[in-house]
């Protein structure tokens, strides 16, 4: 089901950039299914969200609480970003030099906006771990964080409302046995923290 290139298209502008999905940590954590669209090595990979949308890129805003530099030859940063529903695990390595430098300059705790690609890893004990490989990490203010929570709540509710009506939505229902009530509750609780 590759998207066919636009009519008469042979310019780069016909390339459609993958949108950055808004997803709460509590939902991203539950993602297990990851797949590649197409056979090419460069074909995009996706994580299927439990609320039924494929996601190649995410945009998240939360509180950077911890960062850790790792490796000798190949330096990389791991960090934790908290949103009202849980924790995002983010990382940036030598292939993401800009994001790595950005993380290096930010002292936790700080509100950060992160753009990156989610990946699902298997831990040695068989559990799955979702981590976001960063394209950029920027320090932002609380206002931006609060606005993101609204944005993310709306996007999540939109996905829940159309769950099962799209091919990805049907697949999510089948693979995750998604209970919409659970995710509505997650959204509700995230929003409740804002009004406090």
């Amino acid at each position: 089901m590759m998207a066919s290139p636009a009519k008469g298209g042979f310019f780069r502008r016909d390339f459609e950039r993958e949108p950055a999905r808004r997803v709460f940590a509590g939902e991203l954590r539950e993602s297990r299914i990851h797949f590649r669209e197409g056979d090419d090595e460069k074909s995009p990979t996706y994580v299927l969200l439990p609320t039924g949308e494929r996601c190649n890129r995410v945009f998240l805003v939360g509180t950077l609480t911890e960062k850790k530099k790792q490796g000798d030859q190949n330096l990389f940063y791991r960090a934790r970003v908290i949103d009202p529903s849980g924790t995002f695990f983010i990382m940036a390595g030598s292939y993401q030099p800009e994001a790595m430098q950005q993380i290096a300059r930010i002292e936790p705790p700080a509100f950060v906006a992160v753009v990156g690609k989610p990946n699902v890893y298997e831990t040695p004990d068989g559990a799955a771990l979702v981590s976001v490989r960063c394209e950029s990490v920027t320090a932002v203010d609380k206002d931006t964080r609060d606005r993101w929570v609204l944005d993310c709540a709306k996007a999540t509710l939109d996905r829940i409302d159309s769950l099962g009506t799209t091919p990805d939505g049907q697949r999510a229902v089948q693979e995750y046995q998604t209970d919409p009530a659970l995710f509505r509750k997650l959204v509700y609780e995230a929003l409740s923290q804002l009004s406090l």
């Binding site: 206002d143 931006t144 609060d146 606005r147 609204l150 709540a153 709306k154 509710l157 009530a181 509505r184 509750k185 959204v187 509700y188 929003l191 409740s192 804002l194 009004s195």
Partner: peptide
């Protein structure tokens, strides 16, 4: 720049369906 608007919370809370 778009700012956070607290008035949007209520409508979204309603959409989320109130406390389960």
């Amino acid at each position: 720049v778009l700012r956070f608007n607290p008035e949007e919370i209520a409508a979204l809370l309603n959409r989320a369906g109130g406390s389960p």
